[in-house]
Design a protein around this nucleic acid. Structure first.
Lengths: 270, 270
DNA sequence: AGATTTCCGATCAGATTCGTACTTAAACGG
DNA sequence: CCGTTTAAGTACGAATCTGATCGGAAATCT
């Protein structure tokens, strides 16, 4: 379709090919960070429907993010891969999971807590424990425990990832390298029987692995919307997971498979 | 990116997407710790109803806490009684000091920021800078800068001191050991000409020293209530202080003495 | 403790935008 | 020369976003 160079009439009219138009759209979005659909249509001399189609294609390639009214760069405005939208209504499930997971913690324990809204909820449950030592890379988890005088909170170092308010990077991984705790409580964006726990970004995966490596046992906290889902980067293989805390909505075939690989299941009832 | 598209007069209409607006709201809440609903509505040029909806969505994602009249950072301690009380006190002086100190930062700098209400205020002024690298041991400073994509924030590791939401201890000191930045912006509880900067607790003093040691120049931020005061542990001797940013109320004899020891003075005018 | 003011939640209406179906135009091949 | 295929434009119903209003709840003041 693009190969039809035979007809290059170089006079006043410009034959705008689809690829050329999309490239121009990308340039505009990159230059301004956010451009409205109307402006784009005007800029490339096409109808809004055409631009919409282009945007859909570009979005599927991950080159930009589409919103109501226009498009933006990926990364700047996006939080973690949009999974947070789904999670927004599951607060009851999360609370139940957090309750159940808190039962796995005993006074005097040393534990690791990873970032995530579920683990944050879990951390709130620990304020009544005594003589707890908690290592985390999540600012929200740290703040949830900051007011508890009998819980010692250690934060890993690292560069701050603003979208999830957690510390990542080589410094974060190094700072837990010499650590040894009893249990690590980790969340993620997807959990499948084949690939285990996974998240959509590399840097987050790196620290998650490091956190898990510091613990004798790994406890995964995942509500049912994440069970059976695979995202880009694998963090913990199924064999590395010792406990899974989830809620009733999780597909049983995935749970059975995980149990077959040695994962102990804890199902929270609402 | 917000300021760059501010030429609304020429076009008469600017595309503000929902996601963009929410991001801006988050930015404001993180930078100020607590923002009223009315202020938010005014800042994003939307109705209060819309902001309320946004807040509801953001709260369900755990990114902020909302309550009557506005929203605050997530985490219980952020609006601890003593803390917000202190923030409101002398806010005019602190703001003036922060403004003046922000002028000492240039795009592309690498700086260190210590904990404290004044330095937190100072950090808020840096959200518009580009290509900034900030190292801090204060969770509040980190959160103030979390939403700025052009500022890289690195947190030291360490054990969390809940009362000031800052990281202390040997791990914190170690993590800045190999660091070298241009300027360190430090606050404290007292500043006298004889003993320099001081704080009432040992562990805080330890990190303050470590932070100062990582910078070529040390900038002390202290409002007039701290000038002439000595507290228990000395952190930085007067010779180690390169700049002092304070306000008009500071006793001139102390300032003169400090100037005589090589401290460059920056007096903020209200 | 009671009254007043402020703020929140819910419902409704207006406007814009999105998705899909349908139509038109051009290119390609026989 | 004509049918088929692909891209682009038009149209319309559906979904979404925003702003306004009103009853009720919460906080503040006296």
């Amino acid at each position: 379709m693009i190969g039809s160079v035979s007809d290059t009439q170089s006079d006043g009219r410009r034959p705008v090919f689809a690829a050329e138009r999309r490239q121009r759209i990308l340039e505009l979005v990159r230059a301004n960070g956010a451009v409205s659909l109307r402006e784009l249509a005007q800029a490339v001399h096409s109808s809004e429907v055409t631009v919409r189609r282009d945007l859909r294609a570009l979005e599927s390639e991950g080159l930009l993010n589409r919103h109501h009214g226009g498009a933006t760069l990926p990364g700047e405005l996006t939080r973690e891969a949009g999974y947070t939208h789904k999670v927004s209504l599951e607060s009851a499930e999360k609370a139940a999971i957090a309750d159940l997971a808190a039962a796995l913690v005993e006074d005097g324990d040393a534990i690791v807590i990873g970032p995530g809204t579920t683990t944050q909820e879990f951390a709130r449950r620990l304020t009544r424990h005594s003589e707890l030592a908690v290592v985390t890379n999540s600012l929200l988890v740290a703040q949830a425990l900051a007011a508890s005088p009998r819980v010692e909170v250690m934060l890993t170092g690292g560069t701050l990832r603003g979208s999830i308010l957690a510390l990542v990077g080589s410094a974060a991984e190094r700072s837990v390298a010499g650590l040894r705790v009893r249990r690590a409580f980790i969340s993620g964006n997807g959990l499948s029987a084949e690939r285990g726990l996974s998240t959509p970004t590399m840097v987050v995966a790196g620290v998650d692995r490091a956190l898990a490596a510091a613990a004798e046992e790994v406890v995964v906290l995942a509500d049912h919307t994440k069970v059976g889902i695979d995202t880009m980067v694998q963090t913990i293989p199924p064999e590395g997971i010792d406990h899974l805390v989830t809620d009733e909505g999780a597909p049983s075939e995935v749970l059975d498979e995980l149990a077959g690989r040695g994962v102990r299941l804890h199902i929270a009832r609402l």
